[in-house]
Design a protein around this nucleic acid. Sequence first.
DNA 1: CCAGAAAATGTTACCGGTAACATGAAGGCT
DNA 2: AGCCTTCATGTTACCGGTAACATTTTCTGG
Lengths: 347, 347
Amino acid sequence: MKKPAQQPKQIAPRGRTAVAKTPTLADIAAEVGVTKITVSRALNTPDQLSPATLEKVLAAIKRSGYTPNLLAGSLSSNRSKLIVALVPSISGAMFTATMQNVAEHLQQHGYQLLIGQAGYDDAREDALLEAVIGRRPDGIILTGIVHSTQARQKLRAARIPVVETWDLTPKPIDMLVGFSHPAIGKAAADYLWQRGCRRPAIISPDDRRARLRAEAFAAFYAAKKIAVPSVEAPAPTPMGDGRTGLAALLHDHPRIDGVFCGSDNLALGALVEAKARGIFVPQQLKVIGYGDQSYGKDADPPLTSVRIDGAAIGRIAAEMLMARATGQMPKKKIVDIGFSISERASA
Amino acid sequence: MKKPAQQPKQIAPRGRTAVAKTPTLADIAAEVGVTKITVSRALNTPDQLSPATLEKVLAAIKRSGYTPNLLAGSLSSNRSKLIVALVPSISGAMFTATMQNVAEHLQQHGYQLLIGQAGYDDAREDALLEAVIGRRPDGIILTGIVHSTQARQKLRAARIPVVETWDLTPKPIDMLVGFSHPAIGKAAADYLWQRGCRRPAIISPDDRRARLRAEAFAAFYAAKKIAVPSVEAPAPTPMGDGRTGLAALLHDHPRIDGVFCGSDNLALGALVEAKARGIFVPQQLKVIGYGDQSYGKDADPPLTSVRIDGAAIGRIAAEMLMARATGQMPKKKIVDIGFSISERASA
DNA sequence: CCAGAAAATGTTACCGGTAACATGAAGGCT
DNA sequence: AGCCTTCATGTTACCGGTAACATTTTCTGG
């Protein structure tokens, strides 16, 4: 017999516990005839228990379908085994490799990754960040630099290890692994310049980091007294925007001989539009993308693109957090992983 | 009396609280000169407080950079305001629209969405699910049907509202919004049949739902005594796999006149390969994809594809969960949102 | 001016775990 | 046998919030 419900109507068990509850440590403990802490140990440090007790406890747990309440556990131990990553957009194929790598690394250490979608909008980012901090994860991975000073302050006050990624700043909140967007813009400009482009243009997403690249690109040419026309497309840029973007540019500047696209999607769209107009790439128009997505290789002509090692970003970010989790400081708090240009036929 | 010897090591405030802590409700309360509950109310039910008190409390909160510990709050109130969604892969552009919609709907109700990547592997899915249940979210959105009976039992035992999506089953764990994969396979087969395909083939991702579509497709033709050759590609299918897939099929079956592709990526790859070989689409070879991604429209020829209203799935799933959160039962626990075929030039 | 209701704030008791220390039993060694 | 370890388990006190009810203060109207 295990039901001690012989009491003469315990009177509504305190509203709080009105409906049938899910089992707790105490329930399991009572059933087996040990105390809560013993059940806790069965799950967390099983080799501290005698084999006999361990077996009985685990059996009871299995029987009941008990799932430990990690809210309670985390609250008490001040460790959540949870890492939260914030990305501007789930869709962005760019961050996929990063997240994949983070997840795999964390898993090996018994940590879990959950991902939040921040959007490219600052106000929403702040709100999301607040909610994330409130859940007291053991680490936060941010895509891009947090710009709101209030958010930065809260992150610091929370004393949660933070890795900012996919960008560079001399004063990160905590740790950082990224690369320089202006350097990319400059490198792309230099690349086109050396291949003879004298009338380039830009098609860019309207997010902050894409703008940094575009501005550096334009600055390179500005130093040579060449103005660079540009168009922007709203953030999750589909291929279609590349088509219309190039069409718009050609309308005002029919003689452009190169396009720096802020995403591979845009670049692919530009290729399609060029082909539709009978413009030869790369002879008449050079096209360079950003992201070096796998599908760029299958484009016609294959797309030249700026390559970022997103997987490396994920791996390093995860390593930094795991180092922190064991109380160490990572060797370097700021890592610039750089970039390269994958040269193919389109430029 | 307890220990007679009063140890003077009152210093070091109990290991647990060794390092500098982040502020808590109690800290704020003490600073302002009220009790914890008043501070709690300032944040949760501000109109219960007098304007003067409210102002003082909020000022103190702002000053300290305090962020409420939602672990504690959720534990106590038994509400987390958190919904967790599990997707097989972050990259899958398919689920993006769904997640986007879920996030937006939830946000309006003050709920937060976090996304976990389950992978296409059952064991990992179980482990992730356990960790998710442990955090006691107010709802769980699953992509696909959970197949492990143990996982199903734990989900039920946890009494957390669950929505399974992107698939159909007569006995969901709780709620469901999806569509029939076999019906899609059959419809695609019928579509090609009516357009004269008599020697079709299949290129399919190797995940469970894609297989359901492929099998139903083959079954349709089998009923007409036509065997359908097929190749599989590992789960996050890049375009390249569509190229090599079609190449492999053509090698063994040079006369195929149609391909049912399990993803738009695969279909695009097939188009590229066909073009490279000088095979005319759709005259010699009809190609139909699945997903109806936006970039299919810009392919050459534009891609015919099975369209799923992923946004609707997200919206309905979110509505179901929000209904549950307010104690109601949604009108229907099972919703079949169906599908359609976006007819374009490729088939 | 005061009873009674409404508004503002407080008290107490948890939520379900874990840290730290305490205790009892079993084993090793001289 | 006696004492010290080590192993297995228990006790106590929180972690940082919120529910439910209690109390005090302020506001009404007769």
